[in-house]
Design a protein around this nucleic acid. Structure first.
Lengths: 232, 232
DNA sequence: TTCTGTGAATACCTTCACAGCG
DNA sequence: CGCTGTGAAGGTATTCACAGAA
C-alpha cells in the first residue's frame, strides 16, 4: 500500500469497478482480469491495475482477480461497510426525490432523516417514510442518529448557511446540489453537483457542432473527456 | 480564437464564471478582473485568463473585463442564447424533480416534455404542468417541439434503451442519471451524473480520516481536487 | 502603473512496455 | 505461458512569471 495521495479520479473509478464486480458476481463469474474490466468501460487495463495497486496487491499474477475478494476489498476501501447514515436538507422537489432515492441503499448508505424549515413540511414524512425534521433540530438529530453525511438540496441563497449548520453538527462530508460554491473547513469534504452547469456543458457541445448564433468552428468529436465537480 | 480542443474542465469553469458575472451584474458591478473572479472561487487568476483566451480577447489590459460584455460572450459561447429545449425521460421521483427544476430556466433552457412508459403516468402532467407523454411518441414529440437535449431518469436496466431511443429521435446531447455507462454514438455527448458514486467518494473521504474497519493511514487534508463524471 | 494574454515550468494523469511471479 | 504490478514515457491541466497594451 502506498502513502501517495489518491486522486479523486481514482476513487471515482473504484466505485465503477465495484459496481461492475457486483454485476459479475450476480452473473456467477468468479474471476476477472484488468483486461476484462477495461473492456467493459473503455478504459486502459494498466489504469485499473494502477488504481488497485494504490491499496494493495489484490491480484494473482497469471490469473487475475477473484471477483468476490476484490469486491469486498473495494467495498471496504470506499468505506461502504461502515453503512454511513445520511440526511437530506431541503424537502422540496429535488430533496424529496433524493430522500427516497433507492440507489443509495445498494452502496450501503441509509437515509435516516430529512430536514426543512417550512412548517408545512416539518413533522411529515417522505413518500418512503423518512421523517422530516425541523432544521433547528439538526444538531440533535445528527447526534442521536449518528449521521455522518449530509445532502444539501435547498435554494442557493440558503445553502451556505445550511452547510455551516451541517458542519457545526459535526458532519464532515457533504453532497451539495445548490448552485453555489460552498466554503468548507479543514477536514471536511464538500462535493457539488450542479445540474445547470452539467446541462450547459452539453449546450456548449451542441453549439460547437452547429454554430447557430456563433462563429465557432465545426468539430466532429464524439468523445469529450471526464468532467469535474466543484469540491473543497 | 484558438483552434485547440477545449477541455471540459474549461467549459465547466466558463459556466461558473458566467454565474458569477450574473451575480456581479445584479449587484451593479460593471467591471471585474481575473483576480477578483479567482478570489470568489479559489482559483488561479491565470487559469481564468487562459480559459477565456481560448475564445478571444475579452479583456482590456490594465483594466479587466466589462461584466456585461463578458457575460454575453460567455452566454453565447456556451450556446445558452439558443434556448435549447429539453425533455426528461422517466417520471419517477427523480425524473419528476428534474422536470420541475427551476434552476434550468436561468440558463436559458426550457423543459418542454416528459416521457414515461407507465400508463398511470402517461397523459398526466408534472406539478409545474409539463405534459408526460408516452415514450413511444418520443420521436414525434422531439421533432414537433424541436427538442435538442434529453435527460435520462429511468432505472439502470432501461437506460441504454432509452438512450438509443433519444439518439434515434435525433437528440445528440444527453444527461444521464441512471447508474450505468451508456454507449453513445459519433457526434453525440452523453454526460452521466451518478448519485451513488458521488456519495461513495465522500464515504471514501470519511474512511480515510477515521479508519473504522480498515487500516488506512490517517490524513488531514481538507481539500480534495475536482472529480470526473462519466462521459462519452 | 495595472491587469491581460501567454510562453515556459510544473504538477498531475494516463498509457506504454516489460520485469516478475504463479 | 498469462496477467499482475510498476518504472518510464507521454499527455494534459494548472501555475508561474513576465512582456505588452491601456
Amino acid at each position: 500500500m502506498k502513502t501517495e495521495r489518491i486522486s479523486e479520479f481514482t476513487t471515482q473509478r473504484l466505485s465503477v469497478y465495484l459496481r461492475c464486480l457486483e454485476a459479475l458476481e450476480e452473473m456467477g463469474v468468479e474471476r476477472t482480469s484488468s483486461k476484462m474490466l477495461a473492456e467493459r468501460f473503455n478504459l486502459n487495463s494498466a489504469q485499473i491495475r494502477k488504481d488497485l495497486a494504490y491499496f494493495g496487491q489484490f491480484g494473482v499474477r497469471g490469473v487475475g482477480y477473484i471477483v468476490k475478494e476484490l469486491k469486498q476489498q473495494l467495498s471496504s476501501i470506499l468505506g461502504l461497510n461502515a453503512g454511513h447514515k445520511v440526511c437530506v436538507v431541503g424537502a422540496g422537489n429535488l430533496g424529496a426525490a433524493l430522500t427516497d432515492y433507492q440507489g443509495f441503499l445498494k452502496s450501503g448508505f441509509s437515509l435516516v432523516a430529512a430536514f426543512d424549515s417550512s412548517p408545512g413540511k416539518i413533522g411529515g414524512r417522505s413518500r418512503s417514510g423518512v421523517v422530516i425534521y425541523d432544521i433547528k433540530d439538526l444538531r440533535e438529530v445528527v447526534r442521536r442518529e449518528g449521521i455522518a453525511m449530509g445532502i444539501i438540496a435547498v435554494p442557493a441563497e440558503a445553502a451556505q448557511q445550511v452547510c455551516n449548520q451541517l458542519l457545526d453538527a459535526g458532519i464532515r462530508a457533504i453532497l451539495n446540489f445548490a448552485p453555489v460554491r460552498l466554503n468548507g473547513r479543514p477536514n471536511t469534504a464538500i462535493k457539488s453537483i450542479d445540474l445547470s452547469i452539467s446541462l450547459e456543458g452539453l449546450s456548449f457541445f451542441l453549439s460547437k457542432q452547429s454554430p447557430d448564433s456563433q462563429n465557432l468552428e465545426q468539430e466532429q468529436k464524439s468523445d469529450i473527456p471526464s468532467s469535474p465537480t466543484e469540491t473543497r
